[in-house]
Design a protein around this nucleic acid. Structure first.
Lengths: 163, 163
DNA sequence: TATGTTACGTTATAATATAACATTAATATG
DNA sequence: CATATTAATGTTATATTATAACGTAACATA
């Protein structure tokens, strides 16, 4: 129950990222198929690069990688792909870092809160209904209709506290 | 009681901004005096420009104004002043907009949540203990020690809903 | 195949922010 | 007061993040 609130956990030591990545990509493919959208090679590759690990990735780092491996990439190449991936909910932007992370629950409507460890850089994504509701209610009580929340929490993850 | 949570309200129709500004500046002066810091003419002017109204202000707009009125200003002029003002808690940065707003409770330690109307652009600042605590507790329960929260809520303010 | 639409290539530039070092102003200390 | 020290600012250059604008290619479908 509690675990349902965690969309992308801080990875355990035995996290097998290659299978994590594989499942992310196949979910994205399924979603696109269902929605009649094209997960083109560029879009797919950018999604893969955003999910290189569980840390925020910068647009220009993606660009460098693309250029290194296949040329023919300019900033719009990356930003267009990121725009598509964000619009479809496969990727989120961390506003406080100008960086991007993969979404742990693509295809599901959900609220989003990020926990960002400033030591190891790892990001966890939560979908905590209570937080979303509390904020919605507070806003309501001021006559404000909230439509989009940016919630980014910086701190120390448990393994970095241990060190 | 409830009102205490509101640091900068959405301004009422009869809001007298000149007196609002005056009080903001004199509070900043007092704080600096107490802390042995210098609210230099540039810093003071930048604070004034951030508080030009209750909307987010962009760094380069401040720069333009400075250049128009007194020359001898470059990007570092503005960013240094903004850094100082942020460090002292006189100004906040809205991460999701790359823009700056004046703090409604300078000199007081507080949590911060912003409500940003995407129609009129006006920003309200809250200091809602419950939101801060709930998030802190959620993070705690995951073993995460939160040190800094970014909470920016976009939506429609009550007067824009009325229109 | 013709046609419209979507994605991509390409060039240029806009918008946001910082590095690095020289100079000036304020403050502290002998 | 003179001078040393620090803090703030001036200045030039550049890094980083993002978008505009317009042409071309790929794909979908009538």
């Amino acid at each position: 129950m509690q675990d349902k609130q965690i969309v992308t956990p801080f990875s355990p030591a035995d996290h097998q990222h290659s299978s994590c990545l594989k499942s992310v990509l196949s979910t994205a493919e399924d979603c696109c198929r269902q929605r009649g959208l094209r997960l083109t090679p560029i879009r797919r590759r950018v999604l893969e690069l955003v999910w290189k690990n569980h840390e925020p990735v910068k647009a220009y780092d993606i660009l460098e990688t693309l250029q290194a491996e296949k040329k023919r990439a300019a900033p719009p190449t990356v930003y267009r792909a990121l725009d598509f991936l964000q619009a479809e909910g496969f990727v989120h932007k961390l506003e406080s870092m100008n960086a991007y992370v993969g979404c742990g629950a693509p295809g599901h409507h959900h609220t989003t809160q990020f926990l960002i460890c400033h030591t190891c850089g790892v990001v966890a994504e939560l979908d905590d209904i209570e937080i979303g509701e509390l904020i919605g209610n507070k806003a309501d009580s001021l006559g404000f209709k909230a439509t989009h929340l940016t919630i980014e929490i910086k701190g120390l993850c448990s393994s970095c506290q241990a060190d």
